[in-house]
Structures are given as structure tokens and as C-alpha cells.
Design a protein around this nucleic acid. Structure first.
Lengths: 149, 149
DNA sequence: ATTTCTGCAAAACCTTTGCAAGCCG
DNA sequence: CGGCTTGCAAAGGTTTTGCAGAAAT
């Protein structure tokens, strides 16, 4: 079992109260792929707690982000996105359809050696958005060579 | 002279009309350091065209972005940011004070060799946010070792 | 019992849109 | 002129805030 400290201890560590809403919010987010918006999270949590309010979702997402429980990602998107994936990874953003996919640090083929940058900036982590064209959009954009598609 | 095609030709290339507002907007943005928000750009343009409206600024920023005249950057910020810096560069975002500084592709020490990623994603460019602590915040956060500061 | 949290509703942004008048080509 | 652009004002969407009641420690 890899979750001996499910949620109570996370809350304890960060000095926040354990509420039913937070518990469900946390679990729902754990189970969501990709980069859900607050609205999307809200919709899912509602299935379990119909009376929850969007404001509560926002408040707790912020709380979680500030506590380091999860990570905020600012993609080339309009609204806040959040992700639970805590492995080092980055994002491929399709400039045509705006789809976002994760890509592992190693698959990316980036070498991130420096821990200190010019100007004395101390590196915590790298957040890479690879802008490009996803496989689907490449197919659509190549009408002639797609004969064998 | 490096600007033989100041603005008229840019517009011609992209098939958009040359208006006074666009001309001033473009020049103002050229002259702004960093990553101004639409509001900040608006404030500057207003100095020259007091009657300009924020809506016009938004419309034309979008037009410029779509035309490729400038680049939209989505940092770890709330609103759209824009930049004229068309050299390949990335951003250092301080997780304490949220300050943003540019860093050149080479200074970053990243090797970005691949043009194609797993899943058939065709790379156009990399947009790297380095999250970390800027020199100022490091000083403030180190009360003991800052004696000789 | 106190402090913290929730849900509601209103407010505060930020950004977009519709439209009449004006400018560009 | 005809079409694109502007400015205004209003609408739209997202996120935040204030507060009374409810839950947590």
C-alpha cells in the first residue's frame, strides 16, 4: 500500500481542517486525467456532493496549490488548470486544436543541468510547454499525402 | 537600417488595414519591456491616443497575435501577456514575488534537439518557464547568511 | 467553545460582442 | 463608395469576497 497517509495527514501537515468537501475534492482530482478546469472538477465533485458550491471548489483548489498538495499549470489556455500528476513532466500543446498531452521529462529529450541561472536565479523546476501540431491535426492538414491514411 | 519595412508592409503582408491606432499600438509595444498586460499597453497607448478604447487594444492584440506579428505568452499569471521579443527565449518566474525575467535559449542550458516527439507531435517551438527563486527573494529568505549582503 | 469552513449571492475582474459612426483603400 | 475599424456600452465568463450558519478540532 502506497497511501498510508491518505488525506488526514496531508491536512495535518499543512494545518488545514479535514472536511468532507476537501476529501472528496482531493479524491476526485486524483482520479482525473489531464488538466481539468475548476468547472470540470466542480461537475465531478457535485456527483458526490450535490450541494457543494463552486466557490468552495475555488477556495480549496487555491488552498491545495498553496499547500503544495497539487500544482497549478498555466498553459496556453484561458482559465486555471490544475493537475495531480506529481512526476516531472511537461506539456505538448497543439497550436491548432489546443489539445494538451503530458510528456515525461526524459521523453522530451531536454537536458536540464543547471540549478542556478544567470542573475542568481535559483531553479526549482522547469515547466515546458512544447508548442506544435498534434498527430491528428497533421493528418488533417496534409490532404494530398493522406491517401494511405 | 534594420527597419526597411516598418509597419505598412507588415500590414500589407498580413492583409490588414493600416490605422493610426494600430501603428501607435505596435510602436508602443515595441518599446515596452517585459510582458505587459492589455491594461498596461492600453495605458501607454492612451498617452498618444486618449480616445482609444480598451476594446480596440484587445481586438488588435489578438489580430497581431493571429497574424504572427507578436507572440502571446501564458505565464503563471492571470491575464493575457504579450511580448515583442522575437528572439528565442524563455522565462524565469519567481515563485515568491512572481517577477518574470527573460532568459536566452543558450543561457538556459537546455538542449532541444528533437523536432518530433512520441505520439507524432510535431514541434514548432519550446516555451520554458523556469520556476524558482529570484536573487532578491533568496536574500530576503536567508536572514542568517545575509550578513555580508 | 473557538476557530475554520461552507454555501449563497453579490461583486469584481477580464475579455468579448453588437452596433452606429468613421476611416482606409 | 464598400468594407474594415473604431469607440462605446452592454454582456459574458471566470474568479473572488462577505457573511451567516454549519462543521471541525
Amino acid at each position: 500500500m502506497t497511501q498510508p497517509k491518505p488525506f488526514r495527514d496531508l491536512c495535518a501537515e499543512h494545518g488545514i481542517a479535514v472536511t468532507h468537501q476537501r476529501q472528496v475534492l482531493y479524491e476526485v482530482m486524483q482520479g482525473m486525467e489531464g488538466h481539468p478546469s475548476p468547472e470540470e472538477v466542480y461537475a465531478r465533485v457535485r456527483e458526490q456532493i450535490p450541494s457543494i458550491s463552486l466557490a468552495t471548489v475555488y477556495k480549496n483548489i487555491h488552498l491545495f496549490v498553496e499547500s503544495g498538495v497539487l500544482r497549478e499549470v498555466s498553459l496556453h489556455h484561458g482559465s486555471i488548470r490544475v493537475e495531480m500528476n506529481d512526476e516531472d513532466h511537461h506539456h505538448m500543446v497543439c497550436s491548432k486544436c489546443k489539445a494538451i498531452a503530458d510528456i515525461g521529462e526524459d521523453e522530451l529529450g531536454l537536458e536540464t543541468k543547471r540549478r542556478m541561472l544567470p542573475g542568481g536565479f535559483l531553479v526549482e523546476r522547469f515547466s515546458v510547454d512544447v508548442i506544435g501540431i498534434c498527430a491528428n491535426c497533421q493528418r488533417e492538414a496534409a490532404p494530398s499525402s493522406s491517401t494511405r491514411n
